[in-house]
């Protein structure tokens, strides 16, 4: 579903992402790990078409991000680091607008908005103006706009940041449900970035660890932890090795 081929992003002399390749199959839930400033957000922005890679390309659901940009973007639901919300709109009118610009067909639009509201637990607030919502609810509206219309690929940049423990649990079970859908729902491929290791262990089966713009680890969690090591050890080892190698390089998160 997602095929990254040698993605690199440079800003002048600063290398934010350096030759990252990976391939993610349908229905996989992959955790994108890395310290702050490792290049997670930049990689995600390249996959979603917000930033063009300096080198390399990616294929999303069979569409090249350069050659079939519109089709590739249509296949992705994306939650950026800060949820992209219009504070003056109501939750429902915002989601309806997103459904329109994401080409959800008119006949399915109303149902898709209802479904997103229900799945993200927004039933009680969907008529409220977004600026009056709490941070947790705003984050959920952000997730709702990403899953709207069941795009085959979901890219979520720190989906649980700013939520309380209870909400975090709800969101995690929501994400787990996306890859293992019930009847009539389509199976989705999910990439989520986080620096919370417990989150990865709770919902992902595979981990891609990025540090200083380079891919350090790409393996199923069971394989990584089979030797009795914890994710934390692996994380520390991979990031430390890198930090000592070139301390002067600072990627843009």
């Amino acid at each position: 579903m997602i095929e990254a081929r040698g993605l690199s992003k440079r800003y002048g002399d600063v290398v934010a992402v350096d030759d990252v390749s990976f391939s993610i199959g349908k229905g996989e839930v992959v955790g994108f790990l890395g310290p702050n400033g490792a290049g997670k957000t930049t990689t995600m922005r390249m996959l979603t078409g917000f930033l063009p890679p300096t080198e390399g390309t990616a294929v999303i659901a069979g569409h090249d991000i350069f050659e079939q940009a519109i089709d590739a973007r249509r296949s992705v639901g994306y939650l950026p680091e800060t949820p992209p919300l219009y504070p003056e709109m109501t939750c429902r009118s915002y989601l309806t607008y997103v459904a329109k610009i994401k080409d959800v067909p008119r006949a399915r639009r109303h149902g898709a908005v209802d479904q997103a509201i229900e799945r993200c637990g927004l039933e009680d607030v969907h008529r409220r103006v977004i600026s009056t919502l709490s941070k947790g609810f705003r984050q959920r509206v952000g997730i709702a706009q990403a899953i709207l219309g069941d795009p085959p690929v979901l890219i979520l940049d720190e989906p649980t940041v700013g939520l309380d423990p209870l909400q975090i649990r709800e969101i995690r079970s929501l994400i787990a449900g996306l890859a293992a859908p019930g009847k009539g729902e389509s199976q989705q491929t999910v990439v989520l970035s986080t620096h919370i290791l417990a989150e990865v262990e709770a919902i992902c089966r595979r981990v891609i660890l990025i540090s200083d713009g380079r891919k350090q680890v790409d393996a199923p969690i069971t394989e990584l932890t089979s030797g009795g090591r914890s994710l934390e050890e692996i994380f520390t080892q991979a990031t430390l090795r890198d930090a000592s190698a070139d301390l002067d390089l600072e990627g843009d998160g």
Binding site: R45, G49, F50, Y78, I101
Partner: peptide, 8 residues
């Protein structure tokens, strides 16, 4: 802007 530019 991130929503608009990543939408179709």
């Amino acid at each position: 802007d991130e929503l608009l530019l990543t939408s179709p």
